[in-house]
Amino acid sequence: MKLSATKGARILVLAALVASVAACGLPRSGPNKREIFAGSVLKQGDAFVVTVNPRVTRATAVVPSFGFGSDFRNAGVVGSDTIAAGDVLALTVFENVRDDPLLGNTGQRVSVLEQVQVDGQGFIFVPYAGKIKASGQTPDGLRQAITRKLDTQTPDPQVTVQRVAGDGSTVSVTGAVAATGVYPIERPTRTLSTMLARAGGIAIEPSSAIVRVTRAGRTGKVWLQDLYDNPALDIALRAGDQIVVERDTRNFVALGATGAQSLIPFESQTLSAIEAIATVGGLNTTLADPTGVFVFRNEPAEIANAVLGRNDLRGDQRFVYVLDLTQPTGVFEARDFVIRDGDTVYVTEAPFVQWQKTLSAVTGTSAAAESLTSVGSGG
């Protein structure tokens, strides 16, 4: 009779434990499939839950498109010898007289003017010739201008002009390059790609590098890979251009039964769902439900209407895209579906995982309860 009572007490304790576990719930990585679908607009929720198919993939395949405006593209290559404000020139004047030269001392037919800097307004000063506009001219054009000015004062002057080192036609290169600095626009460095090479090349992965150019208050930018692939994007440089190489700042969040749960930066221009999963170590084989791969995203109205075949939606809409990797074309759909900046990739746990957790919790707790019952009964 005593044994039967003890056994009954243990059953009552076990039943109480099961009820307690069922009521309180168990730890898990997030909502399950049933709970996600319960949040659908069709069930009075606030998100559109959409199964991914080729039509959805096409409608949502939006990748950032960068480029340069016409003011950048239509600018011709600057001549390697074009003079600019800030340049330093070396002038040499040969006079066809011996006794009374205009610029030199008696008997001195050659006069050298070194370190003649072009001022901020683009002018230089030459004795007896006065102020002459130099910026925008080639050395030969400036030579002719100086010759015309001096010709009325000394017979048949011969002038040479050489552009030497200076602060005129330069650009700044900063960011993720091997050697940041200020570089002159010279014959080998008159375009964007050659100037990047002059700065030692890119110091980050080319697939995630963006090149930004600011000129006269306007900015354009391109993917580095596009710059290499499309010669039309290799714009001509202008004095004062600011070139910055920066890493792509887009990212997505991986949660749930994946190999890692964290904020993941993009490593290429485009990233598919299957690549995103692979980036975080794939699905956790002991926890993941391959039929429950979800992508959470806020879609602009234009894309939301295209996905749903509507035209009445206004403003951003909450979307949950569903991928089932067990379907015959599931992996193909995940391979083609494009992940975008700010997306959350969430993988649900397999249903049996919760059963395992429940059984483990009940088994462990019942053992503890049995021990307490045993102590309470005195052995």
Results as ranks from 00 to 15, higher is better:
9 A>R: 15
10 R>T: 08
21 V>E: 02
25 G>Y: 05
27 P>S: 03
32 N>R: 00
40 S>K: 05
48 F>T: 12
53 N>G: 04
53 N>A: 03
58 R>L: 10
61 A>H: 10
61 A>N: 06
65 S>E: 14
68 F>Y: 07
70 S>C: 08
72 F>P: 00
72 F>N: 01
87 D>K: 02
88 V>E: 11
100 D>G: 09
118 V>N: 01
123 F>A: 07
137 Q>Y: 10
138 T>K: 02
138 T>Y: 11
144 Q>A: 11
146 I>A: 00
148 R>I: 14
152 T>L: 02
164 V>R: 11
176 A>W: 03
178 A>L: 15
179 A>K: 15
185 I>W: 04
186 E>T: 15
191 T>K: 10
202 I>N: 05
203 A>F: 10
215 R>E: 02
220 G>V: 07
231 P>E: 03
237 L>M: 13
238 R>V: 00
242 Q>V: 04
242 Q>R: 08
244 V>E: 06
247 R>M: 08
251 N>M: 12
254 A>E: 00
258 T>M: 07
266 F>K: 01
283 L>Y: 03
287 L>F: 07
298 N>Y: 12
298 N>A: 10
305 N>M: 11
307 V>C: 00
318 R>Q: 11
320 V>M: 00
321 Y>P: 06
323 L>K: 02
326 T>E: 11
326 T>I: 04
328 P>M: 00
334 A>T: 01
335 R>G: 10
336 D>N: 13
342 G>W: 06
343 D>P: 04
346 Y>H: 04
349 E>Q: 07
352 F>V: 06
352 F>G: 05
357 K>Q: 09
358 T>S: 11
361 A>D: 10
362 V>A: 01
362 V>G: 04
370 E>I: 15
